[in-house]
């Protein structure tokens, strides 16, 4: 079944809810049924998160140039994914979303980042166990998870700070045939659609997209909170399912071969100048850029 706009689902859930609450149930059951019915009007949000090198760490290339060296390097949630989680949690706090589900594709270690997301307010986690697969495979797995979960919105980071790909959300949108709003700096849900302000090269652009949709986050969408200790403890008890690509019925692969990884060209060490006059003299006569 395809995800349906909230107003269509409302008509389906209204009648049984009304019937039950009026004729059959005790006070407590009525309240629970009422809140259950209300929740059904709200949408679920799926957030895709990635485990990456901590943004403060400067990576080094391995001596054999086969890859970057990630041994004993601090890992973290991709910063744009933190912003995605924060946005989803805020939509839940505002009463727009009913549930926030986080999904990460990776080796077992990425459960650490799923737990962080749960501590930040997500309700439930899914790890898809897969390594060394390409961006298309990632997008296909996420699309399958989306088909199963039927969210009203999927929020992703605009870019992972390791691969610097900036493509997963857009690919996912295409695979699901959903509209997208990338590089979001503001998201306003209005019934069955969302108004999203996007950071583009020329300034800001606002789009109205119908739901369900894919949104990717830019830096200024929000300022993510920190996880409190009690919430970190609570997160340990939240459900975390592990799935495989086979279980999802997705065949994954990698069409890209990493031939080699090199350090960037080193800049020659420069000099310090003692005064503005000296700076001007150097720029004129040595660098010849004035």
């Amino acid at each position: 079944m395809r995800w349906q706009p909230a107003h269509q689902r409302y008509r389906k859930t209204e009648r049984p809810g009304f019937w039950h609450t009026t004729f059959w149930l005790t006070q407590g059951q009525q309240e629970r049924a009422a809140s259950h019915n209300k929740r059904k009007l709200l949408m679920k949000i799926l957030v895709a998160v990635k485990r990456v090198i901590d943004y403060n760490v400067k990576v080094r290339v391995k001596a054999d140039q086969s890859d970057v060296d990630l041994a004993n390097v601090k890992m973290a949630l991709n910063p744009f994914c933190e912003i995605a989680i924060e946005e989803a949690v805020r939509l839940k706090e505002k009463g727009v979303a009913s549930e926030v589900v986080v999904v990460s594709i990776g080796a077992k270690a990425c459960q650490e980042q799923i737990r962080t997301a749960l501590a930040l307010g997500a309700d439930r986690g899914i790890q898809v166990e897969a390594e060394n697969i390409d961006a298309l495979s990632i997008a296909r797995l996420l699309a399958k998870v989306a088909e199963q979960e039927q969210p009203g919105m999927i929020i992703l980071g605009k870019q992972s700070i390791d691969s610097d790909n900036n493509q997963t959300g857009q690919m996912l949108g295409a695979l699901l045939d959903w509209p997208q709003a990338t590089f979001a700096s503001e998201v306003v849900i209005e019934g069955d659609s969302a108004q999203v302000t996007r950071e583009v090269d020329g300034g800001l652009q606002t789009l109205a997209i119908s739901l369900p949709a894919v949104v990717t986050t830019d830096l200024r969408l929000n300022e993510p909170r920190y996880a409190s200790l009690p919430n970190i403890m609570k997160a340990k008890k939240k459900p975390l399912d592990v799935l495989t690509p086979e279980q999802l019925g997705v065949s994954v692969g990698n069409a890209l071969t990493l031939v080699k990884v090199e350090p960037p060209a080193e800049r020659q060490a420069g000099i310090k100048v003692g005064s503005v006059d000296e700076l001007i003299e150097k720029l004129r006569n040595e660098a010849k850029v004035l």
């Binding site: 400067k58 691969s163 610097d164």
Partner: peptide, 9 residues
Amino acid sequence: IYAGNAIAT
């Protein structure tokens, strides 16, 4: 990749 700290082929 990695904020330009590595160049991948």
